[in-house]
Design a protein around this nucleic acid. Structure first.
Length: 587
DNA sequence: AGCACGCCGACT
DNA sequence: GTCGGCGTGCTC
């Protein structure tokens, strides 16, 4: 007798395992691995949706098997490789596999399914990956520093992908936000036929998203371009996985089990054997760690680094530039560059609102650059692109518009304010966002850094941003802070949290930042070495399970969470998520 | 989540 | 006696 092993779509840890079901004769033709089914759970009427993970000839279950209620759709939406990945990701975060599947598999749209058909794909030629050592197209796992010139990152990614597509394999590119996705797709569309491009992000309608998902699942040899969840896309014959700007906090998934796309990518590379590229202008501290371990190979481009000049605001300066808090050398260079084209000013806050006295305002900048056209770009006023005519473009971090031929000068202002934030990752965030702005400058255009000195300024002038990441990692190693160690945040009744810490075998010194919350719950952060990760996760999962069903799980008739666990939370230690284009620093 | 099973207090 | 409280355990 054939039985179906089913994972039910439920966030309950008690249900996070496979259930065996009998297959009624009427459904024998439709039930197959990967299809969506409806199954009875705890008999008498109650049904839940789930996926058939596999078919088997026998069952270990002692009782009488229930029958599958219905096949929701004959399309095998659950790819076996994605199932293994989801299981692994859930396990290493003490989470539930179906939580991962919910991110991986979009809502079903029956109409999209019935209209869907695959066609033969156009031919694609492999392009050389220009200006990098040859290993860029060969090494298994790469930390890639990308040429800091406008759109060079996107061209490099497309060039890397082309060779894989030409061989008939698929590529997944994961990017932090929608604007990056659109920019990459625009560059890809110049050299790749549209039938090879699959967009997969949250900005799409349910129908578009489901159609893209089906294409990724059923068409080999496509370039899948998407946001963090795209790292779970069911690519057929996955040859290459690329994560762009892996230090960006947007790549962290806020939904349970709360994993970062880079970590998913690393696990997926290990399971599937595809190639992996972590590409950025500035290497993340996590990427630096992987290089130092010898797990990833560092690859850097050939060519001249950008011209970065640190400046200070002289107290003796007077006039409109001083009023707008722009160092005079930077102001002179910007005024000169303004004759040739657009000039970018990266600032900590936009200041075009009813601004408080100390704020930098567009009006201040207007006085500093009389007659110049002023363009303000921030989270509230997104501007994707500016022309090549002269203009002062004032942008907050992550909201910088692209200039087609590059900015004639870039001024990175408000450094002290951006670095004043209370966070483990301020320096890292600063370097990453500054490097991204610098890459918008035309080749050879000057870049001025204001309010930043010491080793950060030195790293920019020498363009040795990897050294900064190395120093940062050394500090984290000495302090036993992530990413030198892994962490888990435990939340629940004090007794539950204490019991979990004991069960996980965590020493007293490795329990950090315990906080008693107003509702009486305790939140503690534990840290541990990577090699203990699987062991800690397994122990914590057992504790979660104990509290999910046992005493303390319920109070006053309503379900109360007994113990919540989140691994590697990037929002630890006072760090706020850095939203793109949002104001940063003290008001 | 929901639902069944099981072992202690007030009841027709 | 036994009706039902919810604490405890299970879901193929």
């Amino acid at each position: 007798m054939t039985v179906a092993r089913v994972v039910v779509d439920s966030p309950l840890p008690q249900l996070d395992r496979l259930f065996d079901y009998a297959i009624p004769d009427a459904l024998a033709d439709e039930v197959a691995a990967g299809v969506r089914v409806r199954v009875p759970v705890r008999a008498q009427g109650r049904t839940m949706d789930g996926y058939v993970v596999e078919l088997a000839e026998t069952s270990d279950y002692q009782g009488r098997l229930a029958e599958i209620d219905a096949v929701v759709s004959p399309v095998p939406v659950l790819d076996p490789a994605v199932w293994r990945l989801a299981r692994r990701i859930a396990d290493r975060a003490a989470g539930v596999a179906s939580d991962v599947l919910r991110l991986a598999i979009p809502k079903r749209r029956a109409r999209v399914e019935s209209a869907f058909h695959t066609t033969a794909l156009s031919v694609v030629g492999a392009m050389p990956v220009a200006r990098y050592p040859e290993a860029v197209a060969e090494a298994d796992r790469i930390v890639l520093r990308v040429i800091p010139e406008p759109a060079a990152w996107a061209r490099t990614i497309v060039e890397l992908a082309s060779g894989v597509l030409a061989a008939g394999d698929s590529v997944i590119v994961v990017l932090p936000d929608q604007r990056d996705i659109e920019r990459l797709l625009a560059v890809a569309a110049l050299v790749l036929p549209p039938d090879r491009l699959v967009r997969l992000d949250a900005g799409q309608s349910d129908a578009e998203r489901y159609r893209s998902f089906l294409r990724a699942r059923l068409e080999p040899g496509v370039l899948i371009v998407g946001s963090r969840a795209a790292v779970l896309a069911p690519a057929q014959r996955l040859g290459l996985l690329i994560v762009w700007d892996d230090g960006d906090p947007m790549l962290h998934e806020p939904h349970a089990p709360g994993v970062h796309a880079r970590d998913v990518a690393l696990v997926r590379q290990e399971l599937s054997g595809c190639r992996l590229v972590l590409a950025a202008h500035a290497p993340s501290v996590e990427a630096e760690r992987l290089v130092e371990l010898g797990y990833c190979r560092r690859i850097e481009p050939a060519g001249r680094p950008p011209r970065v000049v640190p400046t200070v605001l002289q107290t003796g300066d007077a006039g409109p530039a001083q009023q707008a808090r722009i160092p005079s050398t930077a102001w002179r260079a910007a005024s000169e560059a303004l004759r040739d084209g657009p000039v970018l000013l990266q600032v900590s806050r936009p200041g075009d609102e009813a601004a408080i006295g100390t704020e930098r305002t567009a009006a201040d900048l207007g006085r500093a650059f009389p007659r110049a056209r002023i363009i303000v770009a921030d989270a509230a006023h997104p501007v994707a692109e500016v022309g090549s005519q002269p203009a002062i473009v004032v942008a907050t971090r992550g909201a910088e518009p692209v200039a087609p031929d590059g900015y004639r000068a870039v001024l990175l202002l408000d450094g002290e304010r951006m670095l004043a934030r209370e966070s483990l990752r301020v320096a890292e965030d600063y370097v990453r966002t500054a490097a991204n702005a610098i890459a918008l400058a035309a080749p050879g255009a000057p870049v001025y850094l204001a309010g930043v000195g010491g080793r950060i300024a030195r790293a920019f002038t020498t363009w040795r941003l990897d050294e900064l990441a190395r120093e940062e990692l050394a500090e984290r190693t000495a302090a036993r802070m992530p990413p030198a160690v892994r962490t888990a945040t435990l939340l629940g009744a004090p007794a539950a949290v204490e019991a979990a810490i004991t069960a996980a075998g965590i020493a007293h010194d490795d329990v950090i930042a315990p906080v008693r919350l107003e509702d009486g719950q305790l939140r503690s952060v534990i840290r541990f070495d990577y090699r203990r990760g699987a062991e800690v996760a397994a122990a914590l999962r057992t504790e979660i399970l104990r509290h999910a069903a046992g005493r303390g799980a319920r109070r006053g008739g309503r379900a109360v969470v007994g113990l919540r666990v989140r691994f590697d939370d990037p929002l630890l230690f006072g760090a706020e998520p850095m939203r793109r284009g949002a104001a940063t620093g003290p008001a």
